[in-house]
Amino acid sequence: MAAIKYVNLYFKLISAGIRAQMQYRFAFIMRIIGLITAYTGTAVTMWVMLYQFQVLGSWTFFEMLFLYAIAILSWGFCVILFLHFRSLDTYILNGTFDRFLVRPINPFFHFMAMKFDMASFGQFIFSLIIFIWVSLELHIEWSSGKVLFLLASIIGGILIQGGMLVLISAIAFWTTKSQQFYWVVMYPARNLTNYPLVIYPKIVQWIAAFVVPFGFVNYFPAAVILEKGTPFFPVSIGYFSPLVGLVFFMIAYCVWMLGLSRYKSTGS
């Protein structure tokens, strides 16, 4: 099937997914409210902490909020696109995954397009508002180069976090269950990025750069935009964000496909 047909099919599938989600109006609205409450909560905690310390590892309150805004901006978009992978293990467990294998399209694509998390749009808009507010407070001069760089690194961030969701879901092809790994890996990794990496021990920073590359989601790109130093790492490391995202997502995709071929030889 040609790429254009896939694009067309993607929009048809996600619009069906959105309509399906809208069927449960109460749950839908509660989810939006829940997301916004959770994020505001984190921001307030941050503020309380910084009120005490004023600066954290040379990062001021608004600089940290900027960091946070980039993180939830890309996470918000990532959830819209990739959250369905979190429930892959449920499909495998109750045998409904097979349906993706009897249809003449790529199962990764089919699975991804089955759900489009509309409610996360609320979160997305919320993070956009914070982002605009913070950039005004920080008097950032937005040259076209900076805007392009920001967009590219947000895409990088989406791919890194999306890749992580895909990687974790792929574990289910081997172990049948994988949601626990979400809480073991994804949750702490995202919490880590709420604060500038510079406050953590060197080993943690190193892991966040080269093992679970969440440093590239917000810390490194934000340091470039705010012209802040990144001890232990070269200043220009943030420019690699989009590339890291692309490579990481490709790896995740390959692992997922490998898992799928294992599934096909073992069943569930």
């Binding site: 069906a16 309509r19 399906a20 097979d98 349906r99």
Partner: peptide, 12 residues
Amino acid sequence: VFGQRSQLWWDL
């Protein structure tokens, strides 16, 4: 057709 599991979109 799997008699036990529908292939259709459940909520639509």
